[in-house]
């Protein structure tokens, strides 16, 4: 079969076999919010913000392949509320101070919070103590802002294919760490790539700051998802 027919919230859509629901939705002008997802990387299904309902069951749209005749529920009131809840969980789980963050305006977490019109999280702040690592030559790892999307873990590798970033510990103690030796020898290009991949301000390239002024950043004039959504 060359084309798949399916619906999202009643809208007729088409897709190619093997596409995930997120990819197929995008192609049909439907925005399913994502955070850990990054085009070209193997989907991880970490943040669960892209959760949709298929056949009465919740599933991550970034990891679920679309199937012929699939009926996808996306923008239901419940799902939207639960997605907002996840954004709020991320805000209370870390320490996010948008006004002083280099990534403000380019931050996908912040952009999602605006999209969901989050005023104050429904959950109490956990104010965790997180370590900041500024000891590496090219990058700063600011764990207070990390959402553990695993983009850096999945994408940033040394020339021999070894992973530079990885996750250590588990549960609420889990955190991003690096192979120090490999991280020491990161090139400027790789450091820039890591920073660009990071959806929040957790990986920052050293020796450059606020190169693009506030007001001229990615989400300053175009809300997240607006490049995908068609009426």
């Amino acid at each position: 079969m060359s084309t798949i027919q399916f619906t999202i919230d009643g809208k007729q859509c088409t897709a190619k076999p093997g596409q995930t629901i997120v990819e197929a939705a995008k192609q049909n002008g439907v925005y399913i919010p994502t955070l850990c997802h990054f085009e070209g990387l193997k989907p991880a299904g970490v943040c669960r913000i892209c959760t949709v309902k298929v056949g009465g069951r919740n599933m991550a749209a970034c990891t679920t392949p679309v199937a012929d005749g699939m009926v996808v529920e996306n923008k239901t009131a419940e799902l939207e509320d639960y997605r907002k809840a996840i954004v709020e969980m991320l805000f209370v789980e870390g320490n996010h101070m948008c006004p002083t963050c280099e990534k403000s305006g380019n931050c996908e977490l912040q952009a999602l919070a605006y999209r969901y019109m989050m005023m104050v999280p429904r959950f109490p702040f956990l104010f965790p103590k997180r370590e900041l690592d500024a000891s590496l030559p090219k990058i700063v790892i600011e764990r207070n802002r990390c959402v553990q999307c695993l983009r850096c873990v999945r994408a940033i590798t040394a020339p021999d294919g070894k992973r530079i970033f990885g996750i250590v510990k588990r549960g609420g103690h889990a955190k991003i760490n690096v192979d120090r030796e490999l991280a020491q020898s990161m090139s400027d290009e790789l450091a820039q790539k890591a920073m660009d991949l990071c959806p929040v301000g957790s990986i920052l390239k050293k020796e450059v700051g606020f190169a693009v002024p506030i007001g001229k950043r990615k989400f300053d004039t175009k809300p997240i998802g607006s490049d995908i959504e068609r009426a």
Partner: peptide, 20 residues
């Protein structure tokens, strides 16, 4: 809270929030 693997957000952050 101790045994959550920490991979997904709702389980990692959510259980801590519930316990609090």
């Amino acid at each position: 809270v101790e045994e959550s693997c920490g991979w997904c957000v709702p389980c990692r952050a959510g259980n801590v929030i519930l316990k609090e």
